[in-house]
Simulated assay, not measured.
Amino acid sequence: MAGGGAGSAAGSRADEQRQRILAGAVTVFSRRGYRAASMNEVAEQVGLRKPTLYHYVRTKQDLLVAVYEEVLDESLARGRAIVARASSTREAVRELIVDRAAYTCEHRDLLTICFEEESELPPDLRQPILERRRVYERLVREAVEDHLRESGLTLPIAVNVYVNTLLGAANWTYKWFDPAGPRTPRELGEDVATVLLAVLDAG
């Protein structure tokens, strides 16, 4: 029993250290760009010696993959929770839009990496990342399709076009959101949802 507890504590500490390293990598990658950043800079960012850093992560590429996995896994978990608790199919779509835009604004450093460094992933690592993204996109598409089916509405464009436009509008806020501006991430997300739902409601 005691040994198991000690092992669990050690595992928890290792996980915490990896999260610290990942957060440091996000800071360095978003500031310097993935290609220009070095593992030395990541180690300095988190206050570790380079050999200690390599105890937790093997390569810079592993850190980049971990960034994508964190964003996509969290996005999917949030999306599923939204759909599960929504009071209606329309509310599910609305909240998915609001949450996507707000999350993007709140994590601009993460999203800058995800949207601008994808070409740095080799094909064998890119495919699992793309599949994770497709799972999230399917969640959004199914929410839209459920609402259309339940409401009897039709879109003036293909559902896939609407969903890609929806996600593009919500995701692109990382480029122009002003943290010092008059709108909070959540308020901006609600503005984006208002515009996009007008198309859906007009059907």
Results as ranks from 00 to 15, higher is better:
E150G: 02
G24L: 10
A9Q: 07
Q127C: 01
C114I: 03
Y56A: 05
A25I: 06
L96Y: 08
G152Q: 11
H147S: 12
T112Q: 09
P156Q: 03
V159F: 07
Y54N: 15
R32C: 10
K60D: 03
G4S: 13
L76N: 05
P185W: 04
L153H: 15
G189M: 11
R49A: 03
P128F: 08
A2F: 11
A92N: 04
V26Y: 02
T52S: 07
F177I: 00
Y68E: 05
A84I: 05
A9K: 04
D99M: 04
P179F: 04
E69S: 08
A23R: 15
Q61D: 11
P156R: 07
A66P: 01
C105P: 11
N40Q: 05
D146C: 09
L22I: 01
A180N: 13
M39G: 04
R141T: 09
A143F: 03
W172I: 07
L166H: 00
A84W: 07
M39I: 14
T173A: 07
N160C: 04
N164P: 00
L76F: 13
P51Y: 02
V159A: 10
P182Q: 12
I113G: 09
E131G: 00
I113S: 10
V199M: 02
V28C: 13
A77R: 15
A84V: 05
R108Y: 09
A9W: 01
A193Q: 10
L22R: 08
Y162C: 03
A43Q: 10
A198G: 15
D99E: 12
I113A: 12
R18W: 03
L167Q: 12
R90H: 01
G152Y: 05
L96S: 08
K175D: 03
T59F: 02
R132F: 02
A2W: 11
S30R: 12
A170V: 10
R90W: 01
A158F: 12
R58L: 10
T89P: 09
A14H: 00
G7L: 13
Y136I: 03
D73G: 04
R149Y: 10
K60R: 05
D62F: 07
T154R: 14
G7R: 14
R138V: 14
V42T: 01
G11R: 14
V42M: 01
N171A: 09
D146N: 14
L155T: 11
V28A: 11
D99N: 07
S88G: 00
G33D: 10
A77T: 12
P182W: 02
A23P: 06
P123M: 08
H107A: 11
M1C: 07
L110Y: 14
R80S: 10
I82S: 05
T112W: 13
V71I: 14
G4R: 07
G7Y: 06
I129K: 06
E70I: 00
A84S: 13
D109L: 10
C114Y: 05
D146G: 08
A23N: 13
G203I: 07
D62V: 05
T89S: 15
N40R: 04
E95K: 08
